[in-house]
Simulated assay, not measured.
Amino acid sequence: MKTILIVDDEPRTREGVRKVLEAWSAGQYEIALASNGIEALDWLSQHEASLLITDIRMPEIGGLDLVEKINHMPHPPVVIIISGHPEFDYAQRALQFGVVEYLLKPLDKIKLIRAVELALKREESKNRIERMEKLVDPKLLDSVQEENSYSPQVQEAIQYLNEHLQKPLTMRDTAEHLHMNASYLSVLFKEQTGLTFSEYLTRKRVQRAKELLSGTRLSIGEVAEQVGYQTAKYFVKVFRSMEGVSPGQYRKTIMHSEESIQ
C-alpha cells in the first residue's frame, strides 16, 4: 500500500488534512503523520512515502529544508507544500526543488484533493520512467539511435544477430552468413558500434532477458534458453556481471515496482 506522509507542527492542520485524505482514499493509501521535520526525516529513514505534504514554516527544520534533504534519498516522494504565507521567494524555491503544488492555508478541501491526485500521477510517471531505465541498456540505446549511419554490412550483422539470439552465435558464423571475412567484419563492427561483437551480443541477450523477466512468467532456465545460453548457471553469472543482481532479484524488483502503481 502506498503511503502519504503529512508533516505539520500544527495539530489542527495535521489532523484536518489526515481526515480529508482518509475519506478521499477510502483505505487505498496509508496516511502517516509527523509533527516536525526531524520526525519526518526519522520516519523516512525507515519507510518509503509516495507523497509528502509538508508545512513550510516549522521549528528546527522547515518544509523547504526538509524537501532539500529528501531529494538526496534514493527514492524521494513527490511533494506538496502548504503555507500560511503567499511569499514569492518560498514559492520560487519550492518550484526549484520540483514541488508539485504550493497550497495556501486555510486549505480548500477540493484543491487539496486535486493537488494530491496530480502529485500521485506525477509519482506514477516517475516510477514508470525508472522502470524503463532499468530495462534499457544505455549503450544499446545509443547504438540503435546511430544504426542508420552504420555500413550495410554492420546493419546486416546486427539484424542477423537479433534474429538468432536464442541460438549459439559467433562472429565467424555471422561473417560466413554475410559472405565476409570474419576479421574484417570484427574491425568494422567495433569501429562503428563502439562495442566488440561479443560485447554487443551479450548486451543484446541480457536486454532480451530483462524483457522476458519483466513481461513473462518463464522460469530462469527458460529465459536462459530463450536468449541463447545453454545453462542457467552461466546465464545467471553473465546477468549478474552486467546488472549487479541475479535474474531472480531483478524480476522481484521489477514486479515490486509494477505492483506499487495504483
Rank of each mutant, 00 (worst) to 15 (best):
D65A: 10
V116D: 10
S246V: 03
S257E: 15
M255V: 14
M1N: 07
R57C: 10
M1Q: 04
L212D: 00
G98L: 08
L95P: 00
S143I: 02
L188S: 09
R57A: 12
M171V: 08
P77C: 03
M255P: 01
V187E: 14
Y250S: 01
L169P: 02
K126P: 00
K204R: 13
P152K: 06
M1A: 09
P11T: 03
S151R: 06
V144D: 08
S35N: 10
L41S: 04
A119W: 10
H75L: 07
R12P: 01
T216F: 04
D42A: 04
V20G: 07
L185K: 01
A157F: 06
Q230H: 06
I110H: 15
Q230W: 02
S214W: 04
K134D: 15
E243W: 01
R208Y: 08
T231I: 01
N181I: 03
E124A: 14
P86N: 10
V17E: 11
I31A: 12
P247Q: 02
L135H: 03
R203I: 00
R205Y: 07
Q92Y: 11
H75I: 05
K190M: 11
E163D: 15
Y29D: 05
N127T: 10
S83Y: 06
L51T: 04
P77K: 12
G37W: 02
S260G: 04
Q166G: 15
L178W: 05
L95E: 09
L5C: 12
E130G: 12
E15K: 14
Q192G: 14
T3A: 09
Y102R: 09
L51F: 06
D65V: 08
S125H: 07
I6P: 10
S214K: 11
T231F: 00
D42N: 06
